[in-house]
């Protein structure tokens, strides 16, 4: 989504060509006077697009601020359902993807094509790891009956089928990986090595989702038991550590105040608890949607990099997608403390 317009002018007339034996005019649209004007135009365009993204998210931040400002205690309670360690892990994954993205831009500027391709691949991988961890977090909450306000039915005893939620969430990524792998095979078999290489790499990148799921599930398996010992030790300093995890019932007394809130579903506090999760799901969901859009854009960049399109005076698309990717990172940098680090 982000790249479509930034590169619309530049991507263009001969995307099948093999960059190195054509001249520079190949990717310069006819209405621009040269690579510099094209680069400046597209760059300004993508910055403007990022501004629209900032304002797009600003609405959610305003809603968050208003409700948090007026119901701080509810937000503090609600935030205990979020796992700080998983959030921090995801933050670092995303920061690392930003690093590789910036590296990809540098490599494209220096015409190090293999480095560009590899960096973009790692970026895709990190993005899908992030989504995998997020899927574990979501399915866990759904299992507890934590949904948006209208469907919110957490009562401390509800146990939905977390695993079936997780399986449902994993269907689409699974299909994508399989399709990519199949296309890679077809590409190799029909003598289109570049296409095969691209689809193979993409399958690898999307596989990160399952790495993320593994990471999340493994984390829960490990920390569930640790949470138990914490609870026994009466360590109340970090209650959020126990909120996640299948050992929820063991850690239940940690949530006494929360349960008191949700026990009376007609109380204003309970309604506002639902509101927090409405905002939480909308913010993180929209962010995840941007990550998915980013993965598509990155895949496009990776393909063009494999085709060898980028050169020292034509590295724009990598740069524009990179800026978009950093913005997605930037938004998460704020979401993390606002949602996970309350109280």
């Amino acid at each position: 989504m982000a790249t479509a317009e930034a590169a619309s002018a530049s991507e263009g007339h001969g995307s099948d060509g093999h960059g190195h034996d054509h001249d520079h005019g190949q990717f310069i649209a006819h209405h621009f006077t040269g690579p510099r004007q094209q680069y400046d135009s597209c760059k300004l365009g993508i910055w403007l697009f990022l501004v629209t993204e900032v304002l797009f998210f600003s609405g959610l931040f305003v809603a968050y601020t208003i409700y948090r400002y007026h119901h701080p205690e509810v937000f503090e309670e609600a935030s205990k359902f979020l796992d700080t360690r998983l959030g921090a892990l995801n933050t670092i994954v995303l920061l690392f993807s930003s690093l590789t993205m910036a590296w990809a831009v540098r490599a494209a500027q220096l015409e190090q094509r293999a480095v560009t391709t590899r960096s973009v691949l790692i970026t895709i991988f990190c993005a899908t790891v992030f989504l995998g961890v997020k899927a574990v977090e979501y399915s866990h909450k759904w299992g507890l009956g934590i949904f948006v306000a209208y469907f919110f039915k957490y009562d401390g005893a509800h146990h939905g089928d977390t695993n079936s939620y997780l399986t449902t969430l994993s269907i689409v990524p699974g299909i994508c990986v399989v399709v990519c792998a199949a296309l890679a095979g077809i590409g190799m078999a029909t003598g289109k090595p570049l296409s095969g290489k691209f689809w193979g790499a993409l399958a690898l990148g999307l596989g990160g989702y399952f790495a993320g799921v593994g990471l999340g599930v493994g984390y829960e398996a490990v920390f569930a038991s640790e949470g138990e010992s914490h609870a026994e030790a009466g360590d109340h300093a970090a209650p959020a550590e126990h909120a996640e995890g299948d050992a929820h019932t063991e850690a239940e007394h940690e949530h006494e105040s929360t349960e008191a809130l949700v026990m009376d579903p007609s109380s204003d506090e309970a309604r506002n608890l639902g509101l927090f999760f409405s905002i939480y799901y909308f913010m993180t969901g929209l962010h995840a949607f941007h990550i998915i859009a980013g993965v598509i854009a990155l895949a496009w960049i990776m393909n063009r990099s494999i085709q060898g399109h980028f050169r020292a005076d034509y590295f724009g698309p990598v740069d524009y997608v990179g800026l978009y990717w950093h913005l997605v990172d930037l938004i998460w940098i704020y979401l993390f403390p606002l949602l996970y680090l309350i109280g």
Binding site: R36, I92, L95, L99, A102, W103, Q109, F315, F336
Partner: peptide, 27 residues
């Protein structure tokens, strides 16, 4: 390189990343 091409050095990138991770842990 063309005048609009400014690659950032690897050292800077790595240092930035390290600082970002550090701040995440701190927060």
């Amino acid at each position: 390189l063309p005048s609009f091409n400014h690659p950032i050095s690897v050292t800077t990138l790595l240092a930035t990343f390290a600082a970002l991770v550090m701040f995440t842990i701190v927060t």
